[in-house]
Amino acid sequence: MRSVQDALYNWLSIKVVCDARPEDTAARETLDLFDEIIKDEQHLTNIEVTTDEVMYYVSFIHEGETKKTRFPRDLIEVMLNQINQEPDKYCNFPVEE
């Protein structure tokens, strides 16, 4: 991931899906991957997300400095909306043990 902004966008997009679909193993695995990216590659800590009707707000610490960014809800929720519109295309497959 080249930029903090890109990493946070990808992380937040899949986090929204994972929060809405806690049984979705693919979403959980993808969120785990992006968790690693934002923590290990981008070195972000203390990530907090808030939202209102229009935006998602993300605050975090990067290299010892508190920073904030924001993303439009419609941009972040594209994947979740697509899944909700066509759920048969996004079935959850159980994990084989």
Rank of each mutant, 00 (worst) to 15 (best):
D35A: 08
D35K: 08
D35M: 14
E36P: 06
E36K: 13
E36Y: 07
E36C: 14
E36G: 12
E36A: 15
E36N: 15
I37E: 01
I37C: 06
I38H: 02
I38C: 01
I38A: 03
K39D: 13
K39A: 14
K39Q: 15
K39V: 15
K39W: 13
E41T: 14
E41F: 14
E41Q: 12
E41D: 15
Q42L: 09
Q42P: 06
Q42R: 09
H43R: 14
H43D: 15
H43Y: 07
T45N: 10
T45S: 12
T45W: 12
N46P: 09
E48R: 12
E48S: 13
V49M: 13
V49C: 08
V49K: 03
T51M: 06
T51D: 12
D52N: 13
D52V: 11
V54I: 05
V54R: 06
M55V: 06
M55F: 03
Y56D: 03
Y56E: 02
Y56K: 02
Y57G: 07
Y57T: 06
Y57H: 09
V58C: 06
V58T: 01
V58I: 08
V58Y: 00
S59A: 04
F60S: 00
F60T: 01
F60M: 01
F60G: 00
I61E: 04
H62T: 07
E63H: 11
E63R: 10
E65W: 04
E65C: 09
E65F: 08
E65T: 09
E65K: 15
E65P: 03
T66E: 10
T66Q: 08
T66F: 05
T66A: 11
T66R: 11
K67F: 02
K67E: 06
K67V: 04
K67R: 15
K68E: 05
T69Y: 01
T69E: 02
T69N: 05
R70V: 07
F71N: 00
F71M: 01
P72H: 03
P72K: 06
P72D: 15
R73H: 11
R73N: 10
R73C: 09
L75C: 05
L75Y: 09
I76C: 02
I76A: 00
I76G: 00
E77H: 08
E77S: 05
E77M: 04
V78P: 01
V78Q: 11
V78S: 05
V78L: 12
M79E: 04
M79A: 10
N81P: 08
N81Y: 08
N81Q: 10
N81A: 12
Q82P: 05
Q82T: 10
Q82S: 09
Q82L: 11
I83H: 04
I83W: 09
N84F: 11
Q85D: 13
